[in-house]
């Protein structure tokens, strides 16, 4: 799966957060999250999913194709690279 990536700024102490534009919706993406701890909040006006695995936190709107991923500060580069390798390998 191809994707675009851009860093997002915020003022959290350990922020390493990036946005990814995907060719599929958040809902479709969330089906690939086996092995992740996934929470879907469908009651919100625009339903969202939140997912965690090994300190990597991913979230997005189910009906939108942009997701946001935060990586643990101590090993963010390695985790980001691994996440993007996994993301690129998804056959959507």
């Amino acid at each position: 799966m191809k994707f675009e990536c851009k860093k997002t700024e915020n003022c959290f102490a350990d922020a390493q957060t990036y946005e990814y534009r995907l060719p599929i919706s958040g809902e479709a993406f969330s089906r690939f999250l086996s092995g992740w701890e996934v929470r879907v909040n469908a009651k919100l006006r625009r339903p969202v999913f939140l997912a965690d695995k090994n300190g990597v936190h991913v979230k997005g709107l189910l009906a939108h194709n942009v997701i946001r991923a935060s990586f643990p500060q101590s090993r963010w580069e390695a985790e980001k690279a691994a996440f993007e390798t996994w993301l690129g390998g998804i056959d959507a």
Binding site: N10, F12, T17, N41, L44, R45, R46, P47, V48, L50, K59, L61, H64, R68, S70
Partner: peptide, 10 residues
């Protein structure tokens, strides 16, 4: 951050 995301995006 998650609450802010939900407030803004949702």
């Amino acid at each position: 951050e998650d609450v802010g995301f939900m407030l803004t995006d949702s």
